[in-house]
């Protein structure tokens, strides 16, 4: 993060270079179906189309053809206890078009989610089983500590 504010540029100003600006880009899964060559990013609201384009081209060396942006209204939510309404921040969405022969598929981060869950459940079951066994064993002698055994 920069310690300087990124001032609004107006014509005639000297070109100001801000190192480490408050810019971030987050790859998001599009809500509606899109062509394969379009990638959706959530970006910081200060970023312009040119910023997005340069970011991807200069840092990630991506072939960018066109960038379209819009600002999406943040969701509102009702507080469960007190009933007041809160609102998330607005976010800028950038739709980045790549050449038409390129294709992007959103990475499936949770591909082995089910597998992992199964594993978790299995270990949980095992420990439950163990506890049940322990209770079973100590059924006849209530009040004695666990370590008191042969």
């Amino acid at each position: 993060m920069s310690t300087r504010w990124y001032p609004v540029y107006q014509r005639g100003n000297p070109q100001l270079r801000v190192f480490l600006p408050n810019f971030w880009m987050k790859l998001v899964r599009p809500t509606e179906d899109q062509p394969a060559n379009v990638v959706t990013f959530a970006v910081s609201t200060q970023m312009t189309k040119h910023d997005v384009k340069n970011y991807l081209e200069k840092i990630y060396k991506l072939p960018v053809v066109d960038v379209r942006t819009r600002i999406a209204l943040g969701d509102t939510k009702r507080d469960q206890v007190h009933g007041y309404i809160t609102k998330n921040d607005d976010v800028k969405l950038a739709y980045v078009t790549m050449p038409k022969n390129e294709a992007f598929t959103f990475p499936d981060i949770f591909a082995n989610k089910a597998e992992k869950q199964e594993q978790d459940e299995k270990s949980m079951d095992e420990s439950k089983q163990g506890f049940r066994k322990f209770l079973d064993r100590n059924k006849k002698r209530p009040g004695t500590p666990g370590w008191y055994s042969i």
Binding site: E32, D33, Q34, V38, Y95
Partner: peptide
């Protein structure tokens, strides 16, 4: 072109 026309601009 099955997608929404807005995806093109």
């Amino acid at each position: 072109y099955k997608f929404d026309a807005r995806t093109l601009g």
